[in-house]
Design a protein around this nucleic acid. Structure first.
Length: 267
DNA sequence: TATGACGCTACGGGATGCAA
DNA sequence: TTGCATCCCGTAGCGTCATA
């Protein structure tokens, strides 16, 4: 399998975590659990077949060759059999707002074809990527295309940036009080920019932190993981983990895959 | 259009039980 | 002892409505 990643330069780095390219990923399992991380991803399939996913209710979603994976607080399932060659843009929380006018909460827990928002530009981008010879050239194509389509001025809302920094270890009410907005106004702004409520973001961040610790640890003591991530105890940690992933932490540890946000489904 | 008041819901704190 | 599951209760978070 070939996997390449690239972190774009300023000013794109304010909005985008990384570009990635994957070729020849043929795992033994046919489906993969994708766990919520609160961010948005654009995925472009460079192969022939359409992108195929399944939501939490196991409902099939066929999405053509390009899609936006909206901010998720739910898990979904990827059909790995058709994911032969793909390239993607991993946005920072709320980062995609620089490239679309619509409020991000419309994309919560959804996948939509990229052309819904980008029109003909979506297919033009895919055509240009198909013509590129190497992943490095593709990354430059993405960089150039995104820079030319960004909404100006390229800057982020300071209140939302402050909240993103503080929410993981502060109460929502404290953050809102410091910003000096009414809770309703701030929640509306946060949902438009990030796609979910401040509390949902807080919980997702903690869930992500737990998965990172599980991935890094040789011997796992679940109580330690729970406390380190800010859960009151192991019981609440498990409950939260199941609500976000549909599986319990020990199962996750035994099936976690190519990335801590992905886990192989064996049946 | 923004905000205060209010009520509902979901989450967090705490306790406990069961199985391996 | 550890991991998982469930329950109860108080309250933070969030949505709705009325009002300025």
């Amino acid at each position: 399998m070939i996997l390449r990643t690239y972190a774009p330069q300023m000013p794109l780095s304010m909005f985008i975590e990384s570009f990635w390219y994957m070729q020849g990923y043929h795992p033994s399992h046919s489906r993969e659990l994708a766990l919520p991380d609160g961010s948005v991803e654009v995925v472009i399939n460079l192969g022939e077949e359409q992108i195929r996913l399944f939501n939490r209710e196991n409902k099939e979603l066929l999405l053509g060759h390009t899609m936006i994976c909206g901010p998720h607080v739910d898990y979904f399932v990827i059909d790995t059999a058709i994911e032969a060659t793909t390239i993607g843009i991993h946005f920072k929380p709320g980062g995609i707002r620089m490239f679309m006018k619509e409020p991000l909460f419309e994309l919560l827990n959804t996948h939509v074809s990229l052309d819904t928002f980008w029109g003909a530009r979506a297919n033009e981008l895919r055509d240009e990527l198909l013509a590129a010879q190497t992943p490095e050239v593709m990354f430059r194509v993405l960089e150039r295309r995104l820079l030319s389509s960004a909404l100006l001025p390229m800057e982020r809302n300071p209140s939302v940036l402050y909240a993103l920094k503080e929410l993981p270890h502060s109460r929502v009410s404290e953050v809102i009080e410091h910003i000096g907005m009414s809770h309703r106004k701030f929640n509306q702004l946060f949902k438009e920019e990030i796609g979910m409520t401040p509390k949902q973001f807080n919980r997702i961040f903690r869930f992500q932190e737990a998965m990172r610790l599980i991935g890094n640890g040789d011997t796992i003591i679940w109580t330690d993981i729970a406390l380190a991530c800010g859960y009151y105890d192991q019981a609440h940690f498990i409950k939260d983990f199941q609500s976000f992933s549909g599986i319990n932490p020990s199962d996750y540890r035994s099936i976690s895959g190519r990335h801590h946000n992905h886990a192989a489904l064996l049946s």
